[in-house]
Amino acid sequence: MLVTYPEAAHWPIDPDRLDLVEEFRRQPRGPHGDELQKLLHRLRWAGDPDQPGRYVLIVTQPGKEWMLGRLPRQRGRPIELMRNHVFTSIAEAEWEVFKLRWEAVTGRTLPPHLSEKLV
C-alpha cells in the first residue's frame, strides 16, 4: 500500500527569517519565491500537528465570507467551527492561518508589525 506520510515535509524553518513572513503578508496568494514556497510546503503538508486538527476554512457565503475551522484527523469526528474567526477575503484568512502556523512551528511570537490583520 502506497502511503503519504504527514511528517514527510522537513524543510528546516529558520525563526529569524522574518523576511519570508513579510513576503507572505505582501502576497498571501503568491507568486512566492523559492524559499517561501518551501516554507509553505512544510506548513501545508504537516497540517498543524500541534492542533487537534488541520486549519481549514468553511464557506459561509460563497465568494464572500469564510469561517476558520479545525478538521480532525479521524474520520467521522465533526469539524470544529471557530465562529469568532470570520474572514471576508481568502487572503486575509491565509494570513491568519500563516501566523498561527509560524508561531506554532518556531515557538516564537511575531513582532507587533507582523502580527496585525491584513488590511
Binding site: 503519504t4 503538508w45 476554512l57 468553511i58 464557506v59 478538521l71 480532525p72 465533526p78 469539524i79 481568502i90
Partner: peptide, 28 residues
C-alpha cells in the same frame, strides 16, 4: 480534501470546505 495529506499542498492554499464537506466529514 478531508482525508488526504497532500490536498492542501496540491491546492496551494488553505482548504475551503463547503457545508457538504462538513457533513461528509461526520457522515461517512
Amino acid at each position: 480534501r478531508l482525508d488526504q495529506v497532500h490536498a492542501e499542498a496540491m491546492l496551494e492554499g488553505v482548504l475551503t470546505l463547503s457545508r457538504d464537506d462538513v457533513y461528509i466529514q461526520e457522515h461517512r
